[in-house]
């Protein structure tokens, strides 16, 4: 690990599907203990960016580094063990399995670390999401959307990640649940070592807890700055905060 270097560095990455290129020469970095918000319109390439970082989609050009180590092209199933936890769009919990089994599988990449380590981790995520403990034996498919989102995050944490990637965790959730989940994300970041990339269309909520933010526009980096800088940028206000946005002062 390079002391003081970024946890995640995306360097000039291009990627896409079949004949279309979605990401164009994208560069960004996240430091340990930092929460980076990635906002942008539907179709901007946010999910694609996360898929490249976690190894679900190969990059066509550029590099992905984790703590300085080049992990470009490593498949997702190996990056899970290297410390990247990707909480995907639509949660993708294992619906036919219990909450407890979902968590056990979250620790799959560390299955040789033994049962005590997994029990400790389970206790930690149960502290973060007490609702999950109450539903430990319920099958994940029967949880509410908010609970499934909590479970997907908890499952990601069971791998003891260095880098947590979250794809639209607020999607379809009531504002109260969004607040609850985002406050947990803030607590995770405050532990000091975990780097978090939070992809959100709900830019306001994301900017409220982020240390730094970038705006993606049609696969390119449009803006980068602190939440305050972005919140006062007229382009961001017009395009991403949308109707109903009121500055925090009112």
């Amino acid at each position: 690990m390079t002391a003081g270097g970024p946890r995640l560095a995306v360097e000039g990455v291009s990627a896409g599907y079949d004949r279309i290129t979605v990401l164009h020469d994208l560069t960004l970095a996240v430091a340990p203990g930092e929460l980076l918000a990635v906002v942008g319109a539907n179709g901007a390439g946010k999910t694609t960016m996360l898929r490249v970082v976690s190894g679900l989609l190969p990059a066509r050009a550029g590099r992905v580094r984790l703590d300085g180590e080049d992990v470009t092209g490593r498949p997702a199933e190996r990056l899970a063990g290297a410390g990247i936890a990707h909480v995907p769009e639509n949660r993708l919990v294992f619906p036919g399995m219990s909450v407890a089994d979902n968590l056990t599988l979250g620790a799959y990449s560390r299955r040789r670390a033994g049962r005590t380590a997994a029990d400790e981790d389970r206790a930690i995520v149960w502290d973060l999401f007490p609702r999950l403990r109450d539903r430990a034996l319920q099958s994940a498919g029967t949880l509410s959307g908010g609970e499934q989102q909590m479970l997907a995050i908890a499952r990601g944490l069971m791998a003891r990640p260095r880098l947590l990637l979250l794809d639209e965790p607020s999607l379809g959730l009531a504002p109260k649940l969004v607040t609850e989940i985002f406050s947990v994300l803030g607590r995770l970041r405050d532990r000091g070592d975990l780097a978090v990339v939070l992809v959100e269309q709900n830019a306001r909520a994301a900017l409220r807890i982020a240390d730094r933010a970038v705006v993606l526009d049609r696969g390119r980096l449009l803006l980068e700055g602190t939440p305050d800088e972005l919140l006062t940028d007229p382009r961001v206000q017009a395009a991403y905060l949308g109707r109903g946005y009121t500055p925090a002062t009112t």
Binding site: A80, V93, M97
Partner: peptide, 12 residues
């Protein structure tokens, strides 16, 4: 059940 999520937790 969920092949993408399976890869993301490290299952080959």
């Amino acid at each position: 059940e969920q092949p993408v999520a399976a890869r993301l937790v490290g299952i080959s």
